[in-house]
Write a protein that binds this DNA or RNA. Structure first.
Length: 559
RNA sequence: UGCCCGAUAGUAUAAUGGUAGUACAACUGAUUUUGGUUCAGUUUGUCUUGGUUCGAAUCCAGGUCGGGCAACCA
């Protein structure tokens, strides 16, 4: 047998390399990761990358992944977000080992803080936030410590207890770690551990009026859960020394933090704050507006979990900043939908075609494949009659070169039906074409064509009498520029005003009468579509998930 | 002007001292009852300057460029 290396396995990303080394070295028998969202907004496609990474790792190497809500700021957090996050993670196809909350650990974290005070490594500071900021120094000049840092352990213990008891108003006191005010790492300059917030927490209610800061909650929660690999994004790199310092001083399970570059997508924004603004200021209809890069937005738009997972796989995991091209996402969804979508015909902008040699009142049912990619080869019946609609753009009175569609004297095939020839053009007083009269070639019937006629183009069509009127929503990029966050001024100035186009004149073939929400459709020559939740008993509404690749549009652009 | 992270085709991502590869995008062409799909092919890259080495994308040093860090946010 020849020693040709078999198609090389997919190379590992840097986190997988670390895990394989750890496992090989016997550092851990099994790994534990966590996905740690703050419930203060909906998840976006960037979170999807993190979800796929964290859950994917434990699926690959064996282990478990917790869903942990990082809910240490009661002001911004809400159960609505908790619910949306859970449903998004499950929709993506992942199941957490435990549903946990940083707020579950408040008592334990309080104990950690007491321990730190007892070790002389934390103190209560009465300074205002302005004073604290001023004393912090700048990245190029060291900070200075104030007199509160000299308080005795006993006094700190008493004061911290009083803070918890609600004796002080918001902002009057904070608990700070005593580390190094001269450190070049700003996070070491006596970071704040606890602050006072007399606010109702979505889970603990009024039980607490002091809340731990991120740095005193995240790493500790990781440790409590025995997280072996705590994976986060690049901006937390400078926090890592503090993460390690606290775990070390507290003498608790040594979780380790690893950082990767967050996902950015061009022509959109990827921050919860900005997405929230778009929702609150009504630039979009909701968090799940199909134009939003949220998981719920993509879901409503018609993206499948498989396609999002494939996308997250393809973008890779590394440490350099990146902006992924939207076309990769589109490739992933087309690839999946091409395999599973049911083919249907829908005319968006109808132009009436009368087949003058087809008997009036006659209706013929023609078979058309549900999906040519599907080996099962199921079909549905499509009615054909004397009066049809075709797409207005599929007819031109004076066509340019390489126009393969209908024109005076020209022939085209109607998909799954007959070849027709354009005989006559009817116009109104303004010269607008209102009807095209054609003849059909009876022996050109699809599947049993003996006409010998060669056509250049095939059109989609519907029979007027049986067609269903419906609405179609076409979406385009939300922003006009590749990276709105990087432009001068307000990112909202770069919103694409044409991101939504509503088509109310669409006519669908009758098979779509039984369209279902979970089903995916390809409207022939138009794109992939799904039923929108705004659909009512009276009217069906379809979202365009993505267009088909369009070589003709490209050709025209070259014009 | 302190500290930290990074730099491979248009965009991502491999190559872990030994032939710079893959995907998307772009472009040709073939097939096609979807101007879709599929297939075949083409173009395009190691930030820079030195050094180490038989050999450097990879190691070392200097530079350049990009990003992050001074919230009682996470």
């Amino acid at each position: 047998m020849t020693e040709i290396k078999k198609a090389e396995e997919k190379s590992l990303n840097f986190i997988e390399e670390i895990i394989e080394e750890d496992l090989k070295a016997g550092k851990y028998k099994t790994i534990t990761t966590r996905f740690p969202p703050e419930p203060n907004g909906y998840l976006h496609i960037g979170h999807a990358k993190s979800i796929c990474l964290n859950f994917g790792l434990t699926l690959k190497y064996g282990g478990k992944t917790n869903l942990r809500f990082d809910d240490t700021n009661p002001i911004t957090e809400d159960t609505e977000y908790v619910e949306s996050i859970k449903s998004d993670v499950q929709w993506l196809g992942f199941q957490w080992a435990n549903e946990l909350y940083a707020s579950d650990y408040f008592e334990q974290l309080y104990g950690f803080a007491v321990k730190l005070i007892q070790k002389g490594l934390a103190y209560v500071d009465d300074s205002t936030s302005e004073e604290i900021a001023a004393q912090k120094g700048t990245p190029t000049s060291p900070g200075t410590r104030n007199q509160y840092a000299e308080r005795s352990i006993e006094e700190n213990l008493r004061l911290f207890e009083e803070m918890r008891a609600g004796k002080y108003a918001d902002g009057k006191k904070v608990l700070r770690a005593k580390v190094d005010m001269a450190s070049p790492n700003m996070h070491f300059r006596d970071p704040i551990l606890y602050r006072i917030k007399h606010a109702k927490h979505h889970r603990t209610g009024d039980a607490w009026c002091i809340y731990p800061m991120y740095d005193f909650a995240h790493g500790q929660s990781d440790s409590i859960e025995n997280i072996t690999h705590s994976i986060c994004t690049l901006e937390f790199i400078p926090h890592r020394p503090l993460y390690d310092w606290l775990i070390n001083q507290l003498e608790i399970f040594p979780s380790h933090q690893y950082e990767f570059a967050r996902l950015n997508l061009n022509y959109t924004v990827m921050s919860k704050r900005k997405l929230k603004q778009l929702v609150e200021e009504k630039h979009v209809t909701a968090w799940d507006d199909p134009r939003m890069p949220t998981i719920s937005g993509f879901r409503r738009r018609g993206y499948t979990p498989e396609s999002i997972r494939e996308f997250c796989e393809r973008v890779g995991v590394a440490k350099r900043d990146n902006i992924i091209e939207y076309s990769l996402l589109e490739f992933c969804i087309r690839e999946h939908l091409n395999k599973i979508a049911l083919r249907r015909m829908v005319v968006f902008d109808p132009l009436k075609v009368t087949i003058t040699n087809y008997p009036e009142g006659e209706v013929e049912m023609l078979k058309s494949e549900d999906n040519p990619e599907d080996p099962e080869g199921t079909h549905r019946d499509v009615p054909f009659s004397r009066e049809l609609y075709i797409e207005r753009e599929d007819f031109m009175e004076n066509p340019p070169k390489k126009y393969f569609r209908l024109a005076p004297g020209q022939v085209v095939r109607l998909k799954s039906a007959y070849i027709i020839r354009c005989e006559e053009v009817i116009k109104d007083a303004d010269g607008k074409v209102t009807e095209v009269r054609c003849t059909y070639i009876p022996e050109s019937k699809s599947g049993s064509d003996t006409s010998g006629i060669k056509v250049q183009g095939t059109l989609h069509w519907v029979s007027v009498a049986q067609a269903i009127s419906c609405e179609v929503r076409e979406y385009d990029r939300l922003f006009k520029v590749e990276n709105p966050a990087n432009e001068d001024g307000d990112f909202k100035d770069y919103i694409n005003p044409d991101s939504l186009k509503v088509i109310s004149t669409a006519y669908a073939e009758p098979a779509l009468k039984t369209a279902r929400f979970e089903e995916r459709y390809q409207f022939l020559r138009k794109g992939y579509f799904c039923l929108d939740k705004d659909t009512s008993e009276e009217r069906m509404i379809f979202n365009r998930t993505v267009t088909l690749k369009d070589a003709w549009a490209k050709e025209q652009k070259k014009g």
